[in-house]
Nucleic acid binder design. Structure first.
Length: 489
RNA sequence: GGCGCUAUCGUCUAGGGGUUAGGACGGGUGAUUCUCAGUCACUAAACCGGGGUUCGAAUCCCCGUAGCGCUGCCA
């Protein structure tokens, strides 16, 4: 029984996605249940759009949750904001048992305290000074009667060494003197992450907590809360962080970071997933390309690394290219079409020709790593080139090219059928007739027809473009070279 | 400052006492070819430093250093 518990304060980033993935894999591998729980206990930072984005990201990746929002389940509700009564009840329970106390300290006092501690560069121990822990009972009653704002804090025992066995890192121990009396219930009646997390994990029967390693220092606090309740703590495993290429934190600035950004820039979910799983985990041996099922079968926490990993976008792109090659032209059509429509306003009439569009995709798929590249590089299949790449024009458009282009246009007009085999035959024949290498014909033709010096095989390209279009473009290129514009180049 | 986590090619990693330290991405070279991409072949590239333990350490231990995290009525 595991859970992924994001906080809806922003988009789902790739680090979160990997945590979700590892939880998913662990659950599936062991035949367990994967719960999605929303930790929305901070109303100040809550964003409704973030929630939708998290759902969309997870669904896109195929990390479907067994229980949670939309899916339902017996352990709900799955929004912490809908469980506040539960947390309050549990806080009361701790209060009654003398394991927690009410704290009436103002934010100002706490801020001042922190400042002084900072100044004093305290040798060890920091955090709350336990001012209210020692407050006389009568005083507390009076304050309570006066409705004074307060929080509930945990009484952290002195001189305790809290030890836990992290499934990835091994034994980790903390001295309780390092821990301050953490807040369980905020003055607005909402629980803190710590309380809600422990109460929910227990009530939802979570057996394994797999989360990011920024939580590792919070774990002893959580264990103390479990202890205060008299509950057995679950197993913990802390996943390493994912860093940006410069070794810093991943953010919108450094790499896309957001899962949906990767979707938008045309990445395949399989590729992102496969790439992500390799960040911090390897099945052993040389295996890298894996389906979700294969990952599931091979997954084990013992093989998860404790080391932070850099998100190498170049490798992601390579992997995406790999997965892109496996997609059929047919299945790619809607996505590429959407890109074309954006890239080529107003949409040219030829776009409606799906059979044609599919063939274009076929020509570009293998030389692309992302869907968007297919669309970006194939504009000339729908519209005559608006300009010629200047550098290529200097190289391939010479004054003598005009006559070559004219000759080719003439021969092409008579060519039947207009197939790539026939085209190639014709080109070789003409080249031979002129005593020129075929490249002298091919390169100028490519530039004339596409405006650029790279792309699919020329003859396949010409065949698809069709006789009329090719001849028209050959002629206008010839004219262009002849004009002042052409000569200036 | 305190506490914690981490440390193998540029990057992701395998290897966990005896290995020519393996693979992948990226780089370089060559082949194929009408270009680009691809593909294929080849190639350069790493055990953070210092001490221990041991016949033997990349591997185990300690120290140092560096990076990161936490030090909130954020999660």
């Amino acid at each position: 029984m595991v859970r992924f518990a994001p906080s809806p304060t922003g988009y789902l980033h790739v680090g979160g996605a990997r945590t979700a993935l590892f939880n998913f894999l662990f659950a599936r591998h062991h035949g367990g249940i994967f719960i999605l729980r929303i930790e929305d206990t901070d109303q100040k930072r809550f964003q409704a759009e973030a929630l939708q984005e998290i759902f969309a990201s997870l669904k896109w990746l195929g990390l479907n949750w067994d229980e949670g929002p939309e899916a339902g389940g017996e352990r709900g509700p799955y929004f912490q904001s809908q469980r506040t009564a539960l947390y309050r009840r549990h806080a009361e329970q701790l209060l009654a048992a003398g394991k927690a106390y009410r704290c009436f300290c103002s934010e100002e006092r706490l801020a001042r305290m922190r400042e002084e501690q900072e100044k004093a560069k305290m040798a060890h121990g920091s955090g709350y000074d336990r001012h209210c822990r020692l407050r006389p009972e009568a005083e507390v009653k009076a304050l309570l009667a006066a409705n004074a704002a307060h929080v509930v804090r945990l009484k952290v025992p002195d001189n305790r060494v809290v030890v836990f066995n992290d499934l990835i890192r091994g034994e980790i121990s903390y001295d309780s003197s390092q821990l301050d009396d953490l807040v369980l219930l905020k003055s607005d009646g909402f629980p803190t992450y710590h309380l809600a997390n422990v109460v929910d994990d227990h009530l939802m029967q979570i057996t394994h907590v797999l989360r990011g390693d920024e939580w590792i220092v919070s774990t002893p606090k959580h264990i103390l809360i479990y202890e205060a309740f008299g509950w057995p703590p679950p197993h913990f495993a802390h996943m390493p962080v994912i860093l940006a290429a410069d070794g810093g934190k991943l953010s919108k600035r450094r790499g896309a970071a957001s899962v949906l950004d990767y979707q938008r820039s045309g990445f395949q979910p399989e590729a992102l997933l496969n790439f992500l799983v390799l960040l911090g985990w390897a099945p052993g041996g040389d295996r890298e390309i894996m389906t979700l099922d294969e990952m599931t079968a091979a997954f084990s926490l013992q093989r998860v690394s404790a080391k932070a990993a850099v998100f190498d976008e170049t490798k992601l792109e390579w992997m995406n290219g790999h997965y892109l090659q496996q997609r059929s032209q047919e299945s790619l059509l809607p996505e590429v079409m959407a890109c074309w429509e954006k890239l080529l306003p107003p949409p040219p009439a030829v776009l409606a020709d799906q059979a044609y569009a599919k063939k274009v995709i076929g020509l570009f798929k293998e030389r692309s790593k992302k869907i968007i590249e297919i669309a970006e590089n194939s504009g000339y299949f729908f519209r005559d080139p608006a300009a010629y790449d200047p550098q290529a024009a200097r190289k391939y458009f010479k004054s003598e090219t005009i006559s070559i282009l004219e000759l080719l246009a003439e021969k092409l007009a008579a060519l039947e059928p207009f197939s790539h085999e026939a085209l190639e035959g014709l080109y070789r024949q003409v080249a031979e007739g002129l005593g020129l290498p075929a490249g002298k014909l091919i390169h100028p033709t490519r530039l004339a027809v596409s405006g650029v010096s790279f792309g699919p095989g020329l003859f396949e390209m010409l065949e698809l473009l069709g006789k009329e279009t090719v001849i028209r473009r050959l002629q206008s290129a010839g004219n262009w070279i002849g004009t002042a514009a052409g000569k200036e180049e």
